[in-house]
């Protein structure tokens, strides 16, 4: 079988697929948890600035990843 399956390419797809394809949603979920989780709001019902910044970083990284993917498609890497 090994002559018909490019195992190294497949391994890379699986490895980076899990890192990016599962990691980015997890990061986004972390952002959601940070700004909307059970202890996200203080006594007055406001989300503290620290949490907002942390959540913003999580969402920011996912946004940059999406824009990076668009740039990658446009550059003809696809």
């Amino acid at each position: 079988m090994s002559e018909y399956i490019e195992w190294s390419a497949l391994g890379n797809v699986l490895l980076f697929g899990i890192l990016v394809g599962a990691g980015l949603p997890a990061l986004f979920a972390l952002g959601v948890r940070t700004v909307a989780g059970p202890s996200a709001r203080d006594a007055e019902g406001n989300v503290p600035t620290g949490r907002k910044v942390l959540g913003g970083i999580c969402f920011g990284i996912t946004l940059v990843a999406v824009l990076g993917a668009v740039a990658y498609i446009a550059a003809g890497g696809h």
Binding site: F16, G17, G21, A22, L24, P25, A69, G77, H78
Partner: peptide, 13 residues
Amino acid sequence: TSSAAVILLSSHF
């Protein structure tokens, strides 16, 4: 996200 990642990565590799 899984679809986008696997599709783009598979053609990259």
